[in-house]
Design a binder for these strands. Structure first.
Lengths: 260, 260
DNA sequence: CCAAAAGTGTTTTGACTACACCCATGG
DNA sequence: CCATGGGTGTAGTCAAAACACTTTTGG
């Protein structure tokens, strides 16, 4: 573990053969919710033009899941993030179509010379994870992380990303949509206390259509794992909405029993 | 492509560095249906005790999906099989806990010496695919394939398999269950003409419980992509059941429009 | 007082469930 | 003629969809 921490970033990139599982990486689609919008966490590496998903190679003795947790920890400071692998992107042309090769950038910026046939220059498979995080708890590294600039972006802001990362985001949202009724969106994306309209906006954003306010409330409450509090959120020029909190225990019971 | 075909099997295993994407393999959970039972296609390699999933390393210039199709083609003779990736098994102890190492068997049987730090001896990640095939169309290689013995096994026959392959099967069934209403079971597992009771048994086997005959028929027909024929299947000592066929066009339309 | 957005209840519709009776076939 | 298993119909229940009115708050 010591070793890993010390050798993250550029230092580790030079020692690929010694430390990384070759030809493989992990990329994370990290979603947060702020001001009524879904946000995605993107990074830009020094020397690269485009934004990309936060990702990493995987250490030889590291579980793939652990790599994903490490990526999140390094960029957001958060532990125990909600993470799910959703797809392996493994086409043989995955790297051939990249505009900028890792080895070229390493050479230009750090005078690191890698042989042409190094696995950095061949197809690298990447396993996509999606993560749901509480926006307000995220502490982005002020000056970026190891030569990365890190920012939240609007999810619907469609600036083209590095390589096939836009496709990865698209696939992530598809997979999230498929599993919507099994995901604890309320728990992961919102702070402890939240209103049902806030929760509804999340579902609406992900589904891409609006939901009937009354039917949504009835349905989500019928699941039984969202608990009404005796508090309201003041502030809008309208009736103060009730606050609710997510009951993790009841959620887990519900999941274990019947989902269909 | 020439090269690949010539270098499958043992010949290719010796030249791992030249031909394979390192540290990565594909394993297939191949399901068929015969005599009212779900069957799974298993292989046993020369020199290994236990049955395992048909799998392969992936050639450096080969799409991961293509590798899965190749595995199926080599073992069953079938093209265009229904295949879906479902999970990447990538824990760092994946190979450490294996009873028999690839390199040991290579040495024993073929006097092939591999260095201790070769990636064969390190963690190898494997991407699981599930495949649905028509049992009657499968032609198993008579003497096995490249030193493998290949057989159909009963799915519920729980003989322990090589390494974590039993876990892979378990996960495959979970994922199939989750996507039951989106999978064309009738099309892939049964021959062109089939009866609804046959189809129902498949669903029952996968779900692990029995379904009401009448409700099942009403529901499956309400989807609109299973067409009734003017034929019966004679043979049982009971009323001859109607034959049906799968309408691929209508199925695809239904999938594109609304699944929820 | 007004606009904006939240809270709540009712009716209708359609799907899933449970159940019963009749029909064809082989032995 | 009988056991076996297939075909079809119906009433009851429950969840989802559509919809209207009242309440609170800030400006």
């Amino acid at each position: 573990m010591e070793q890993k921490t010390q050798l993250s970033g550029i230092a580790a990139l030079q020692k690929a053969e010694d430390f990384f599982h070759p030809g493989f990486s992990v990329d994370c689609v990290v979603l947060g919710f702020h001001n009524g919008n879904l946000k995605i966490l993107l990074t830009r590496y020094k020397g690269f033009d485009k934004w990309r998903l936060p990702g990493s190679f995987v250490f030889k003795d590291e579980d793939v899941d652990a790599a994903a947790f490490r990526i999140l920890k390094e960029r957001t400071g958060l532990d125990n993030v909600f993470l799910k692998q959703f797809y392996l992107f493994g086409n043989s042309d995955r790297n051939r179509k990249y505009e900028q090769r890792v080895s070229d950038v390493l050479k230009e910026l750090y005078q690191i010379d890698l042989p042409e046939d190094h696995w950095y220059n061949r197809r690298i498979m990447t396993l996509g994870y999606y993560a749901l995080v509480e926006y307000s708890k995220v502490r982005l590294p002020e000056r970026g992380y190891e030569g990365e600039f890190i920012e939240w972006h609007d999810l619907d802001h469609t600036e083209p990303m590095y390589a096939d990362h836009s496709d990865i985001v698209k696939k992530a949202l598809e997979m999230i949509r498929l599993n919507l009724n099994v995901l604890p969106l309320g728990k992961e994306l919102l702070s402890e206390k939240f209103t049902l309209p806030e929760l509804r906006v999340i579902y609406e954003t992900i589904l891409g259509n609006s939901l009937d306010r009354r039917n949504f409330q009835r349905k989500i409450l019928s699941f039984g794992y969202i608990e009404k509090l005796n508090e309201q959120r003041k502030g809008g020029s309208h009736k103060a909405p009730n606050l609710y909190k997510f009951d993790t225990e009841k959620y887990e019971k519900a999941m274990q029993q019947g989902f269909d």
